[in-house]
């Protein structure tokens, strides 16, 4: 792994809180690194373990489930 490796992080964001928080970060123009790809879910409880395993299997460096 080279030192300039940019990790790819997959985020599962609850529509009612974490995703809304992501929107608010935008309205507030808070800057953060562009490494996360967000999947919007209706509740963090709907994230099936398979999805997490799948993400790692396909090369994600990290998975965040936020809700």
């Amino acid at each position: 792994m080279t030192t300039n490796h940019e990790p790819v992080i997959l985020g599962f964001l609850c529509n009612w809180c974490a995703y809304a928080g992501g929107d608010l970060a935008g309205v507030s123009r808070l800057q953060y690194p562009p490494n996360m790809r967000a999947v919007r879910v209706m509740c963090s409880g709907m994230v099936h373990p398979d999805l997490v395993v799948d993400a790692f299997g396909k090369g994600a460096d990290g998975v965040m489930v936020m809700g």
Binding site: V8, L10, R37, V39, V41, M42, M46, V47, H48, D50, L51, D54, A55, K58, G59, A60
Partner: peptide, 22 residues
């Protein structure tokens, strides 16, 4: 499953997100 958020749909998103990752 949940309509609009089936496992297949979510998996498709996961795969699409990671398509460029080696």
């Amino acid at each position: 499953h949940v309509h609009g958020f089936t496992l297949d749909q979510l998996k498709a998103q996961v795969s699409a997100a990671l398509v460029d990752v080696v």
